[in-house]
């Protein structure tokens, strides 16, 4: 059974069709990267799988459960893009709070170690650097010992060192058998981390396969070139793709 699945999912916001019939599934232990230009429907797909939005038609499940159900929530964690995180709480307090939501959370010390937060666990969130803040959000996503992680643009705005450090954390999670749905604008990130890539464009899946397959399909050697080739083939204006 797939750990997460979208079957024939459409989503309409008024006159806008954000998703026009998407089938997507994540296998146990798999890291699936969802790629696509801005407004392609990546975030909508993630929101539906998190139970934060309902599909207009079609079905979404997490471990066979409704995405907004408690059973689904207990087995997944999510790192989302957020405008502001409460700044007057210490790293450890944030982690202790989110751990209390779960029935079988990781020990706090283990979460702190797995997210690379040792030594700064007693700092206020507001006093952290950008990379440290993202690692705290990563800690909140993994503290419940989930089987499935949602990472929505986890490394946006980070310097190279912090990005690589977070990659190592993500690989660590997958190495322990976890599944991941990653959305990213950084194609080298998808290339480095993903077992499988799905390219979404204007609400439809435009291409799907391992990074190697996608590159072979388009006769390119870098995922970024493959992505541009798919977008071009799909009739997108290049300017739109590059922004």
């Amino acid at each position: 059974m797939p750990v997460a699945e979208l079957r024939g999912v459409t989503k309409r916001y008024g006159p806008v069709e954000a998703l026009r019939g998407i089938d997507l599934s994540i296998a146990p232990g798999e890291l699936l990267a969802l790629l696509g230009p801005n407004g392609a429907g990546k975030t909508t797909a993630v929101r539906i799988l998190l139970g934060l939005a309902a599909p207009t038609s079609g079905e979404a499940t997490i471990f066979g459960y409704h995405p907004a159900s408690r059973q689904a929530k207990l087995r997944r964690g999510a790192l989302l893009q957020v405008g502001r995180v409460p700044e007057t709480l210490k790293v450890r307090e944030h982690i202790e709070l989110f751990s209390s939501y779960y029935e079988k959370p990781l020990p706090i010390a283990e979460t702190i170690a797995a997210a690379g937060l040792a030594g700064i666990e007693n700092r206020l969130f507001g006093a952290l650097s950008g990379g440290q803040k993202q690692r705290v959000l990563f800690a909140l996503a993994i503290c419940g010992n989930p089987d499935l992680l949602f990472l929505d643009e986890p490394t946006v705005g980070l310097d190279v060192e912090s990005r690589r450090a977070l990659w190592a954390r993500i690989r660590g999670f997958v190495a322990r058998g976890g599944s991941v749905l990653l959305t990213t604008h950084y194609l080298d990130e998808a290339d480095a981390l993903a077992h499988r890539v799905a390219v979404i464009d204007r609400g439809r899946i435009a291409a799907e396969g391992t990074p190697a397959e996608i590159k072979a399909q388009t006769g390119t050697s870098v995922l970024e070139d493959a992505f541009l080739a798919i977008m071009k083939e799909n009739g997108n204006a290049l300017e739109e793709v590059l922004q």
Binding site: L80, V82, G83, V85, Y101, Y102
Partner: peptide, 18 residues
């Protein structure tokens, strides 16, 4: 208003918080 408007409430809604 702040937590709803700047996405934090959504992070909590995606979590198993009662």
């Amino acid at each position: 208003a702040v937590e709803r408007g700047l996405g934090w409430l959504e992070v909590k809604r995606a979590s198993p918080m009662p």
